[in-house]
């Protein structure tokens, strides 16, 4: 106990909000909200049911909630995670189980969307109700609305702007087909159009 790192022991449970500017290791359980500038490690056997806004996240246990990590997310082989995730870096080991939407782009927008949602929610009371994970599509839609609320949406122009070059540069060598609006438009999911248009 010399270095006094913050550890939530395996027989400890916290309901509420945890904030801090140091590493936090969870071996027990946290329900609510965690805001951390450094690394949050959710150990094997630990349970975190909370919205997370952290620097780095390492998961070996179970996490349910919206995840925003400004640096990186690592889902180790024993990780069980459900919830939307925004982080510039994501690694997933074989065996890790995850369900949710991944956004490796606009972390600021994701954080803004997450915090605006948190404001809408009533303050954490003595017994925070166990909250089902938010619907995924709605969350993304919100994030997009949050960033582009004022921008005019041009559905007609959308299809022609669907090119992979915006976020993922296409290799120069293979010949590209002329874009047929109908075919490619139908194939590209609606969210992808939005995403590219956003950039």
């Amino acid at each position: 106990m010399a270095d006094k790192e913050t550890v939530i022991g395996s027989d400890t449970r916290i309901s509420g909000e945890v904030r801090g500017e140091e590493d936090l290791v969870v071996r027990g359980r946290i329900d609510g909200k965690i805001q951390l500038t450094q690394t949050l490690t959710v150990e094997k056997g630990a349970t975190v049911q909370a919205d997370l806004d952290v620097g780095h996240l390492v998961v070996l246990g179970a996490v349910v909630g919206t995840i925003v990590a400004s640096e990186s997310v690592k889902l180790m082989s024993t990780a069980r995670v459900v919830g939307d995730l925004a982080s510039p870096r994501l690694t997933m080991e074989a065996g890790a189980a995850y369900r949710g939407r991944v956004d490796m782009g606009d972390i600021a927008a994701a954080r803004a969307a997450a915090s605006s949602r948190a404001v809408q929610r009533p303050a954490v009371s003595e017994k925070p109700a166990i909250r089902p994970a938010p619907p995924r599509m709605a969350t993304l839609a919100k994030a997009i609305v949050a960033t582009k609320a004022s921008a005019p949406v041009a559905p007609a122009a959308a299809r022609s702007t669907v090119t992979p070059s915006a976020s993922v540069p296409a290799p120069a060598s293979p010949p590209a087909f002329p874009r047929v609006a109908g075919a490619m438009g139908a194939m590209t999911p609606a969210w992808a159009k939005k995403k590219i248009r956003r950039r």
């Binding site: 790192e5 909000e17 609510g32």
Partner: peptide, 11 residues
């Protein structure tokens, strides 16, 4: 730890 703030219940 010293920089940690918890608002809620600890058991």
């Amino acid at each position: 730890g010293s920089s940690i703030v918890i608002d809620g219940e600890i058991t």
